[in-house]
Design a protein around this nucleic acid. Sequence first.
DNA 1: TTGCATTCTGAAAGCGCTTTGAACGGGACG
DNA 2: CGTCCCGTTCAAAGCGCTTTCAGAATGCAA
Lengths: 338, 338
Amino acid sequence: MNLKELSQILSLSQTTVSRALNGYPEVNESTRQRVVEAAREHGYAPNAAARRLATGKANAIGCVILIDNGGLDPQFLEFLAGVNEQAAKEKLDVVLASTDANGDEAAFRRLASHGQVDGIFLFAPGRSDPRIKLLEELDLPFIIYGGTPTSDTAFPHLDIDNDAAFNNAARLLTQMGHKRIALLNGVRSHAASAQREKGARRAMKAAKGDLPKTMVQHGDLSEVNGYEAAGKLLDGDQPPTALLCASLFAAMGAERAAVERGVEVGSGLSLIAHDDGFPYLKPETFRTPLTTTRAPLRKAGMRVAERLNARIKGTEKDPKAEIWPAELVLRASVGPPA
Amino acid sequence: MNLKELSQILSLSQTTVSRALNGYPEVNESTRQRVVEAAREHGYAPNAAARRLATGKANAIGCVILIDNGGLDPQFLEFLAGVNEQAAKEKLDVVLASTDANGDEAAFRRLASHGQVDGIFLFAPGRSDPRIKLLEELDLPFIIYGGTPTSDTAFPHLDIDNDAAFNNAARLLTQMGHKRIALLNGVRSHAASAQREKGARRAMKAAKGDLPKTMVQHGDLSEVNGYEAAGKLLDGDQPPTALLCASLFAAMGAERAAVERGVEVGSGLSLIAHDDGFPYLKPETFRTPLTTTRAPLRKAGMRVAERLNARIKGTEKDPKAEIWPAELVLRASVGPPA
DNA sequence: TTGCATTCTGAAAGCGCTTTGAACGGGACG
DNA sequence: CGTCCCGTTCAAAGCGCTTTCAGAATGCAA
């Protein structure tokens, strides 16, 4: 059932039927009733591709996902939940095109080629992420969540202030007297990792201290990885008295490593982690309630979708950067060093 | 830059350029070279909407998400990761259309209207999920993950054998001598919840026991919820000696509730949970390593994408149901009742 | 030379929608 | 009575691609 058939059934022109269905004012109300009725009755739904071709609008936003190994991480998924929620409000669909590191361009172009989506968002691109270059070549509205490789304001952009978050966290620890603070960071290529390290290091410097390379561990943010990295640190000859973790799961692992070694979290080892607001796991329910830097990733996703849509509609113009602060939420997992 | 312009630049017809780009055999190899070269040089990418309109193929699969409250759950996201991974292999995009419980049809039709996607998958529809009816009205290839409301074979369908999984788990417990076994289940409307309860109940019956209503808790599968539900059970006058949990997060909460009450997991309370294979949290790293029924949700997602694509291509025809077993993996969290 | 198959290329007809510009009645107004 | 305008409707063009069918050019056999 297409427009032509429907209009024939109604003995009307395609023009009128189209207008009636799309709410244009120049259609007699009784005619509109008749059309809407018939459309429902015959189960008519306009062909999306044809509409896109005619209007040039896709009513969809897209994301090219880099599947390196193991697929999506919970951070992206939490973010995506937000994007999706907002997109639903604005009646947009979300298109995901995946690609591995090499077959990159194809998926990107497939998505970006005009007509498929009206705009693109990127989640946490790496420092030299090839997708950014591609994004610039296209002239599609876009927005980036997470660190951009160059200046922060060069791109439309939203980020958590990871630097400030970990700077605050580290300062709290130095003020309590900690000298040996370690950092359990995300993967090295990730811009946020660099920001966190920078913030922590500055706080150490300010306290006449230091953050040696040996005190910084990189890896994916799983419990297992947190456990192993923390174990390595705790078994060193200069074990840290405090630990900053980039995620709740990593902190879980760190806690496990500590407990296993008879180290009490809070007194024997201070622990602070970043909390993305993952709703199924809360820092206050940790064995020792966990001090966190908190910034709800889902909200960020919603905001990204909102801004992207604003860019598509032309409401937002300049490459505005938006940096969100993370709250430092104090709980029992920090204390002065033993 | 569109096909017309490109063909003018090359002094060729649109036909030839189109054929050259799409790998048709009737184009002279040297011509093809020239075309491909020029396309890259001028950054030509075909308009997706036009191509769809012309071919009737979208090269995309879609999913309509029901956003009730709080958005997506980690199970769906893990599943989606799998779908996405497979879709990437088959060069398909994944389109997500969200909708809340009322504005349902609109998003559904938006997605389903011909030309947007070639097929649809549904994740774990509820027992009277309105989306299923809609799905049948359309004639689009589709496949359902998770329980279907009616007979299992009526729809193309993939599911974990939750019944068998929880039947096995409960049998193990009864064989060890447990009489009072409780179930920490997912939300009531969810088909999988019913399956789990059924399986567990059958095992109890077989052991001349019983699974009273008071021993079954429903709720979302978060840590907090697991904690509260388990607490309620443990504080009752007939506390269970064993607990079956529908998810790892719920089991974490249950463990916390037990520990808080001085109940040792394994000896004081046996614990078995279902493990979806979420890579950031492993059952073997629990305080007491957790016995699980395991079925990797990501793999299921991949398989669903694969089968959906087979249906689209016409390779798979009949409404085949595919039920995957869950392994019962024994760890220290179970033992005979005290 | 003609005939015929083979290889390459092109004109044009869709795909199903939106949207422009024009047409058609039927008051209202002078 | 003619004119103008408003409300309503329609025919047709166009969005950018694919694909059918036909045509041009070439090679080879008869």
